[in-house]
Amino acid sequence: MRGAGRGKAVDEPALLSIEGVSASFGKRRILDDVSFTVEPSSIVAVTGRSGAGKTTLLGIISGLMKPDGGRVVYKGQNILKWGDFKRSRFRNREIGFVFQFFNLLPDMTSYQNIFYPAIISPRSRNLKEKVDYLVGYLGLEKILHQYPATLSGGERQRVAVARAIINNPRIILADEPTGNLDERSANDILSLFKKLRDENGMAIVIATHDSRTVASADVHFNIDDARLQRIEPPERRKKSRRGR
């Protein structure tokens, strides 16, 4: 199934493709023969009722969980064949994570949290400038030296997004990023994602229940009874808006 490839040659390899992935916990099958592709500069929404397997799917894409079968191909390579070291580096450099519960480290300031993924790699350079740039980009100046416990949900999520993109990844995996936010903060995060898609060419895969998130997405998949299905948008208006 070819996903969000607008304006691209059909045979050009996708940034990320999930091919025939199945997963189960014990005897329960959570994902059954799931396939889809993710293109650069796109927002992919994955919906499904609670317990449908959205988080599991993100775990498999990031190489943190092993599926029963199938391939996860990034830039032509099956990441499931990689060892832990290579998969860790892949997560560190190519992927950024955003979670429903923000998942910041409570004993570090916003600044240190944003910094953290970068200190893992000895090759990270000009870190201070990068952080400074992100802080300006996301408007985090005032809360930079506060600890997560003193921040609002929206502020925490913006810090989490900053952390996710400090290493300039190609893909952001977001697990219900707006699920714990008020409407305004949720909108902030969504426009941030769009900005990253449009200005940085990032691909953003969002597991969500939220209809506004789905509305902002370029592609929409739904998991039902372990199977993934593409949902075509009801109106074509969205597509024309993206067609620049």
């Binding site: 990031s62 860790s88 997560r91 992927i95 994570f97 480290l105 893992i120 952390r163």
Partner: peptide, 16 residues
């Protein structure tokens, strides 16, 4: 465990 799993997500290898 929270910190360790978050480190894993962020890209810290098992060996490390």
């Amino acid at each position: 465990s929270y910190t360790f799993s978050l480190q894993r997500v962020i890209g810290v290898s098992k060996v490390r």
